[in-house]
Amino acid sequence: MSTVVVSARNLTKRYGRVTAVDGINLAVQRGEIFGLLGPNGAGKTTTILMLLGLTEVTSGRIDVLGFDPARDPLEVKRRIGYLPDSVGFYDNLTAYENLRYTARLARIDRSEIEDRIASALKRVRLDQVADRRVATFSRGMRQRLGLAEVLLKRAEVAILDEPTSGLDPQSTYELLEMIRGLKADGVAVLLSSHLLDRVQSVCDRVALFHRGRIALQGTVAELAREVLGGGFTILVEARGTDTATLAAIPGVRQVTDEGDGRYRLLADSDLRSEVAGRIVSGGGTLLRLNMLEPSLDAIYARYFEGARDAA
C-alpha cells in the first residue's frame, strides 16, 4: 500500500531577501518514517511549519491528507500530531491536565478524553506520574509527554522536530522505539534531526537538507550507492593472504592494506562468501569478515565534500 499522505511541490519560503526553503519536493507515504536531516538552519523547521500551516508559504503547493494547510489549517491540524523542537508544557499543571487541555483544543469527545489520555500516558510509560506537575519532569519525560499528545490525537501523520536532541542514549533509544511503535500503527512519521546517525536506524527514507534545498532523497542504501560510488565496504582480517589475492576476486574494485593483516575492500556487491572462499582456499586463516553499513554521516560528509569541490 503506497498512499501519499504528505506531499510538497516546489515549496519555497523567503524571509525578505533570505531564502529559507528553496523549491523542495517531498512525498511521504502512509506508515513510513521519513527523515528530514541536515544541519541547523538548513530549512527543516521552516518546512515543518509550512506543512502545519503555521507559516505562510511563499510559493509552491502542499497537500496533507487532501487538505491545503494554508486554506484549511484546522482540518490539517486535526489530523497531524506535532512535537516541536524542545517542547514546552505548562509547568504549573500536571501531565494529565496538560493533555486534557490539548484534548479539549483538539475537540475530542468529552466521554473519550479520560480513556484516551490514560492509554496515551501508558504507552509512553508516564502513567505513574500522570498527576505530577510537569515542572518536575526531566527532558526525556517532557519529550515522551509530547509523544503522548500525538498518540492522544490519534494523528494520521506525526511530525517530530528534533525529538532526540538533548537526550541521553537510553532516553534516545526509548524514544526511537516509541516512534517505531507509531509506524506500526500505520502513522506516517516525519522526523527532523541534525544527528544523522541517531535516526538513521529508524528512517525508511531520508531527505538531506542543505541550505534550503533537498540535496539528496531516498533510502539510506540508495543514497550510499549514489554518493559513495555504489560500493560495499568489506573489512577483512586474515593471515596468509595479500593484497593481490584479494584484488583478483571479480567484483573487487579496490583493496587497501591497513596493516597487521587487515584489509579494506571496496566491492560492487556483497562478496563476503567469495572473499572467505578465496582466503581459505589460498591456505590463509580468516579471522574476521565484516561488511560496513553505509553511514549517513559518511554519505553527508562525502556528498558535501564533493559539492564544495565542484563549486
Binding site: P73, S86, V87, F89, A106
Partner: peptide, 14 residues
C-alpha cells in the same frame, strides 16, 4: 518563553 506556543497552535484552533 515556555515554548508552548507552537504546540498549542498545532492544535486545530486559529
Amino acid at each position: 518563553s515556555r515554548r508552548t506556543m507552537s504546540r498549542v497552535l498545532a492544535q486545530p484552533i486559529y
